[in-house]
Amino acid sequence: MSNFMAQWVYSPTVKDHFMNPRNTWDEKENFVPDGIGDVGSLACGDQMRVMIQVEDGRIKAIRWLTYGCASAIASTSMLSEMAIGLTLEDAYHLSPEVITDALGGLPEHKFHCSVLGDKGLRAAIDDYLEKNGLSNPYRNAVAKIVCECHNITDVQIEDLVKTKQVTTLEELQKLTGYGSTCGKCKADIAGLFDELTHIYNV
């Protein structure tokens, strides 16, 4: 009957953050956020809200809510600890890999959960900058060209998905013309599109 011999499903750090999540939002706290980011999709079982307070260009405080599995809870908790005190630029560059490493690793198929955490934080920073009429130099800085022939970035595609200007891969192809020259990027963009539709619940 004992399962003491076997390791837990996830790393000890994940277990710790799952059992004692840091910086979760609590109604009683009256936390007033400067920026809010909502990402995720019920279809894939993860939905997340990240709220930040910003002071002197740095993340002063962070609160979050998540509907999701143990690794989603742990990765958001870890992200929240790592983000505090960072400049907005550094916070914007917190990558899923960094969060996953800090957690002592996650199973391959769980990786998208921590991808969600960094997207949530970016969305909250975008929201903060927009609300305060500030320019957003980070967004394009993290952009990666995904279709070289047509000079299309992942951020451009993300914007189109997020604002629901495109809802299918065909529409995206028509609008941007990606993949129509050398065609090398087709599989990668299809994968990216699939991930983004999950994240933004399209």
């Binding site: 499903v9 799952f18 894939c44 079982g45 509907y67 999701g68 599995c69 143990a70 690794s71 769980k110």
Partner: peptide, 22 residues
């Protein structure tokens, strides 16, 4: 979410299963 429920229950010694994708 089901996996989270399952794992919190497991930490209390209760073993169940879930239909969650996670």
């Amino acid at each position: 979410e089901g996996e989270s429920i399952l794992l919190y229950l497991d930490l209390e010694g209760i073993q169940v299963s879930t239909g969650s994708a996670c």
